[in-house]
Design a protein around this nucleic acid. Sequence first.
DNA 1: GTGGTCTAGACCACT
DNA 2: GTGGTCTAGACCACC
Lengths: 134, 134, 134, 134
Amino acid sequence: MTVELLAMHFRLNPNSGVPIYLQLMEQIKHGVETGALRPGDQLPGIRKLAESLVMNPNTVAKAFRELEHEGYIEVRHGAGAFISERLNTSEVHDRLDLARPLMEKAVVQARQLGLTDEELRRLMEAELLQLSDS
Amino acid sequence: MTVELLAMHFRLNPNSGVPIYLQLMEQIKHGVETGALRPGDQLPGIRKLAESLVMNPNTVAKAFRELEHEGYIEVRHGAGAFISERLNTSEVHDRLDLARPLMEKAVVQARQLGLTDEELRRLMEAELLQLSDS
Amino acid sequence: MTVELLAMHFRLNPNSGVPIYLQLMEQIKHGVETGALRPGDQLPGIRKLAESLVMNPNTVAKAFRELEHEGYIEVRHGAGAFISERLNTSEVHDRLDLARPLMEKAVVQARQLGLTDEELRRLMEAELLQLSDS
Amino acid sequence: MTVELLAMHFRLNPNSGVPIYLQLMEQIKHGVETGALRPGDQLPGIRKLAESLVMNPNTVAKAFRELEHEGYIEVRHGAGAFISERLNTSEVHDRLDLARPLMEKAVVQARQLGLTDEELRRLMEAELLQLSDS
DNA sequence: GTGGTCTAGACCACT
DNA sequence: GTGGTCTAGACCACC
């Protein structure tokens, strides 16, 4: 896939309270998990990405650095940033493909019932906590 | 219900990245939404709660302050904090009771498939984004 | 031990080619390894340390962030940075106490022979490589 | 000696944090210091070396350029690169031959004790700093 | 061309 | 008063 297209799909909200660099990280991670970004793919350059997202290059750089720490990407000085080849993505894809339909159903229904995003997040967190206990 | 029992159910994780005062707020909100906390119920005192949760009283105070701003609780000088009587909780309960089963099913399945909490959160956020678009 | 004294012992050389934040990290790590810094000890605040070392707070912050990633310290937002309690330092101390005398002897002799620091570093790296091979 | 054999002994690690061109430089310098490379010896061509080490020719060129600046090699247009005839290597060899045994002992012992390479480097740097002070 | 470091300073969030 | 985020921009290092 073209990296240029990817950049256009980012949805960053500077006023959400969630740090921008974290939003960037999460969307890149999700791209990896869904297969939109595949191991070996080169990410856009820091400055280019920063420009297209209207943000400071340092902020993009911070996201890249953290993603590298977490093993999602490999940054080669002077060469660019690449989706890590070590990632076992097929496994993740399978899990996600199986999990998505039910989650989609749950979210759609909740929205139809009028739950706010916040209420939905709290509901999910509560479910996660319960499972952690047992 | 007894407030003492409630306090024992709080699950705060200082290392989750989520601010502690926010975790407290969310769990109190969720308690209201599920009916575990009902309008008129008295919350534990700030110092008591802080002590039992091993956290700074200022942090509890901040959570209470925010909850009051958002209308979830009423703080009466010298008397303590109470779940707001004005809340129309029955409506929320109904919505949540209907939404919970599907969400529970989705979360349980996802966990069985081996998705991490992080992956699940990103999956839901992605679904929320898609609904916002359309 | 007083944190103030520690700060005075830092020896940073901005012109060494080694990034300042790395030098800071290494000296803090070495402090942990020698026992000069013990688990639970609070590090000086970012701004204070930056001031006493005549550098930018962001640079200190970067060192702290990386040290946290590597598990040497725990940074609690609003509270400060602390040597990680999880570190098994006694084991490291023992190893180091046993290794130091020989290394000291080797370095002293090498310097008396007139080896430059660079030559010494290359010598050690060559020895490390040889051991990795076998 | 054959230059071909030398090339096979290079051990470059792109993930060590140390720039590749520097690793190359250091290993050539160390080769000179140990006598593996003697004044007048011809180094492999830039393209050949780059190919055999799977790296960018520019990177090899940079290493050669720096080595020339520092007087370790002489680059003769169209003829290739040669270990500088001006180097007074015998002196260095003697120093190194005397210093190596102790360093070897120190490194071997440290590794047996379980010290990581990082810990060993920090230990030596700390010793160097102490000697500089006194 | 790429990414990395460092500075300077504003503003925010947490305890 | 603590650390965190973000911006702006200079300068360097690497490939």
